[in-house]
Amino acid sequence: MQKKNLAQLILGDWNTKTVVGVAIGAALFGVLMVYGGVKVFTNTNLTTAMLIPVIVGALFGPVPALVACFFGNVIADLIGGWGFWFDWSIGNGVLGFFVGLLPLYGADINKGVFTVKHAVIFALVAILGNALAFGVVTPLFTLLFFGGELNITFLQSLTGGASNVLVLTVLGIPLLFALAKRNASSQNLVKE
C-alpha cells in the first residue's frame, strides 16, 4: 500500500466504509449522550460519548471524527428533544477533530499500534483540543448567540472541557490500549 499524503490522512477516504463507520460512530455518540452518562452530582453528567470520535478518528481520520461528533451531537438533540445548542455542537466538532488526529502521529489501532508515546501525545492533544474547543470556540459562540456574563460563560464551558479531559484520559487511554491489544496479531500461541 502506498503512503497516504497529509490531506488524505486528514480528510479520510469517504468511501462506503467510511460513511458507515461515521454513521455508526454518530449513532454510538447519540446513544451514549442520551443513555450512558456517569452521574457526578444530580445534574452533572460525565458523558462517555466523547470517546467515540477518538475511535472514529483512529479508524478513518480526523475529519470523519469531526462529522461523527457534530452529527452525533445533533442526533442526540433530536432524540432528546431538548433543542439545538449549536455553540456546544460546534465545540464538540472541533474537539472531535483534535481527538481524531491519531493516524497523523502514527497510532494505528487496526494494526495494534498504540504505544506509551502515542498515549502521551493523545493526552496532550486532548487537553489542547479541549482548551481550544471549550476555552475559546464554545464560549465565544455562546456570547455571540446569546450574550451573557463573561466569567460564568467561560467557567461553564471550561467545566465541560475539564470533564471531557477526565473522560478522555482516564477512560480513553485504557480503551485505546485495549483495542490495540485486541487487534495486534497474536502469533506464537502455544497450548500449555
Binding site: 487487534n183 500461541l189 497450548k191
Partner: peptide
C-alpha cells in the same frame, strides 16, 4: 491449555 491466550485469537 489456552488460558493465557487473548480472546481475539
Amino acid at each position: 491449555s489456552m488460558r493465557n491466550w487473548p480472546v481475539s485469537a
